[in-house]
Simulated assay, not measured.
Amino acid sequence: MSTSKHHKIRLRVAFGTSVDLPSNYQVIDLEEEEGYEAPDPSDVVFQLSLDIGIEGSNKTDIFQCVIATERNRRLVEKEPYVIVLKEYRYDAFRKAILNIIKSCEAETWYDCLSCLRRHFLWEYEGMYREEDLKKMN
C-alpha cells in the first residue's frame, strides 16, 4: 500500500509596517532578532500590517491586526483582530507573530488563508465568496 506524503505550504513574512511606531522602527523585519522596545513595556498599542506570502514566491498579501498589552486591552476591545501581550518586548512580539504564521501553514493556500483570516484582517476581505476563494487555490 502506498501513501502519498502531504506537504505544508511554508509561509513567510516579507516585512511588517506600523506608522504608530517611531520612524526608524516603522518597517519591521521579523528575521531580525532586535527591534522596537517600548519605553513602558506594559503600555503598548499599535496597528500592524504584515506582508505574508508563500516561501519562495515574491507575491504577498497584506494582513492587519492591532498589537496591545493587557493594560490597553480596553482601548481596542472593538477591534476584531488584536494580539494581546502581557508585556511588550520585541522578542515576545516577534515570537508571537512568527508562531501564528507557522500555525497557519497548511497543504493549500486556501487553508493557509482561512487560518490567517482568523488572526488578521486580509486586504481582500469581503471581495470574494468562499467558494470562489477555494477555486483560486
Rank of each mutant, 00 (worst) to 15 (best):
M1C: 03
S2A: 05
T3F: 11
S4Y: 08
S4W: 06
S4P: 04
S4K: 14
K5T: 14
I9M: 15
R10L: 05
L11T: 09
R12D: 14
V13P: 11
F15W: 13
T17W: 10
S18T: 12
L21Y: 00
L21N: 00
S23R: 13
N24H: 12
Y25M: 06
Y25H: 14
I28T: 12
D29T: 09
L30Q: 08
E31R: 14
E32N: 14
E33I: 10
E34I: 10
P39K: 15
P39L: 15
V44T: 12
F46W: 02
L48Y: 03
L48G: 02
S49K: 14
L50D: 04
I52D: 03
G53H: 06
G56H: 05
G56Y: 04
S57W: 11
S57Q: 12
N58I: 11
N58R: 13
T60P: 02
T60Q: 11
D61S: 13
F63H: 02
V66W: 02
T69S: 02
R71V: 02
N72M: 14
N72D: 06
R73Y: 09
R73F: 09
V76K: 11
K78W: 07
K78L: 13
Y81R: 15
V82E: 07
V82Q: 11
I83P: 00
I83C: 06
L85V: 02
L85Q: 01
L85S: 04
E87N: 09
R89I: 01
D91P: 05
R94K: 11
K95G: 05
I97H: 09
L98P: 05
I100Q: 12
I100R: 09
I100S: 08
S103L: 05
A106E: 14
D111G: 01
D111Y: 03
D111N: 11
L113W: 00
S114L: 07
S114F: 04
C115Q: 09
F120K: 06
F120Y: 04
L121E: 07
E123S: 11
E123H: 03
Y124V: 06
G126R: 07
M127D: 08
L133A: 03
K135P: 02
K135N: 12
K135R: 14
M136I: 01
N137Y: 05
N137H: 07
